[in-house]
Amino acid sequence: MKRFTHLEFDDSSRPPDPSGKGESVRDEGYFVNRAVLCFLHGDFELALRNYSRALEVNSSLFEGWAGQVRMLIELGEYPEALTWADKAMEMFPEHPELLAAKSVACLRDAKLEKAKAYSDNAISKSNAGPRVWLGRAELLLHGKKRIAQDCLSKALATAGEQSDLIRLEAGRLLRQYRHFAPACEYLEAAVRLFPKSPMAWYELGFCQQRLGFSQAVTSLEQCLHLHPHYLDANELLQAAQKAGFFRKLMVRLGLR
């Protein structure tokens, strides 16, 4: 059974159980699940807070530390992510995922030499996980290397029970580096796996819009249906709806 198969999204239609029976125990696993949910909602700030709360319960939880570093990267706080990865590595020395996270932070902070060194170090470890390969793929995508696709495949192959999330992250990565067509493949699979994730729908809608597909409107509407205050999606939807033939052509040709 996959790990995130039974993630429950907020469903206000379901009345709370007054007896309190069946209420989940608020252990570290609960907060990690909440953090993943927030990530899928595109709310990285709240995800970071949930990872912190998971660590308040159990400070030796690796997933909590790694998740915090990932969220800091998502929030664009790269020096803080590096600092926090260093702190996490005091507890988990030379952990490849933390090294990979540092590599990504350096890469996005435009420190290529360091990013490459961290990635090399991470990949040389025997227990290199899927995020190590994702980090490597990002480095190669930045260098415009075709082998990046192989790294993504490797990441999926080593993902195991995390493959759903890794697929989504791979799609986001490809979208970030403007490989919209392969990104669409990953993201279409991701929205099937996480149909209630506004972020997955937004990412898919973004790629479809860039490829000039009319399904972009549907995807973005779905995103807004799930998360009405998703500002990026709202803007993109308006742009997609207003786009005329010429603009679509420009987008299709990659001129916009």
Binding site: L48, S52, L55, E56, N58, S59, S60, G64, Q68, V69, L72, L75, G76, E77, P79, E80, T83, W84, K87, E90, M91, F92, P93, E94
Partner: peptide
């Protein structure tokens, strides 16, 4: 073998620095 912390210290800062 790997140097990882087996038992986390009682008081450890778990809230990351923010920008």
């Amino acid at each position: 073998r790997c140097g990882s912390v087996l038992q986390a210290p009682a008081a450890v800062e778990v809230h990351p620095p923010r920008m």
